[in-house]
């Protein structure tokens, strides 16, 4: 599988996504659910809302958005918390929370398997979950991860091995109508000139 992908990627000049697929509405209890697969990475999203607010988090002018990222094993740690924050900010930019004030929207993301580009898979699963729940959105969004290998070439949708070898890993969230960047995060180091990943 990995060898095959490398061959395909080499043919496409490094710009190739692994095959992806999505299933919506597969869980019966949440208001919206989606499973997103990118190669061997898969994330399951469950969405509840607009529901009653627990505790004193209630906001008088908009909905409270809560994102919970559950790792495959064990309890969520610092990395999960930081990704939750990024996902929450991305979703808040798109969800029209003002239409449902004093309510809570809870997004639970369960990692089923991590084979690289986990954050972009989470972003995609979140978008599909929001869509399935029928929440008011100003636009759709997608996530994509790029890795810069030591030679400076860009690899889209890297696998775990490619991520380990990479000099820098950049993740972007892009919205649908104007293809604007909603969120970006970097791991590793790269120069400003090396950031041509920004869409025109």
């Amino acid at each position: 599988m990995a060898g095959e992908k490398e061959k395909v990627v080499a043919a496409a000049g490094g710009c190739c996504l692994r095959p992806f697929s999505c299933e919506q509405g597969l869980l019966s209890r949440p208001d919206g659910s989606a499973a997103f697969l990118q190669g061997d990475t898969s994330v399951l999203a469950g969405l509840y809302g607009p529901a009653e607010v627990k505790g004193s988090k209630e906001l008088p002018d908009r909905a409270v958005l809560e994102v919970l990222l559950r790792p495959k094993v064990g309890l969520p740690g610092v990395i999960e918390r930081s990704r939750e924050q990024l996902l929450r900010q991305t979703c808040e930019a798109v969800v029209l929370g003002v239409l449902h004030p004093r309510t809570a929207i809870t997004l639970v993301l369960q990692v089923l398997s991590d084979a690289g580009s986990l954050l972009s898979c989470c972003i995609n699963a979140a978008c599909m979950g929001l869509l399935d729940a029928g929440l008011p959105l100003s636009s759709l969004f997608c996530g994509v991860t790029c890795a810069l290998d030591p030679n400076g070439a860009i690899i889209l949708d890297p696998t775990t091995r490619q991520e380990q070898e990479a000099r820098a890993i950049l993740t972007f969230a892009i919205d649908s109508p104007e293809r604007k960047v909603l969120m970006t995060t970097t791991k590793g180091s790269c120069s400003v000139e090396e950031g041509p990943c920004f869409p025109p």
């Binding site: 798109v94 869509l131 959105l137 100003s138 759709l140 919205d175 649908s176």
Partner: peptide
Amino acid sequence: AEACVGQVVLPGDV
């Protein structure tokens, strides 16, 4: 709008 009646629309469409 008239051309899209009966068709699938997605958030963000104008």
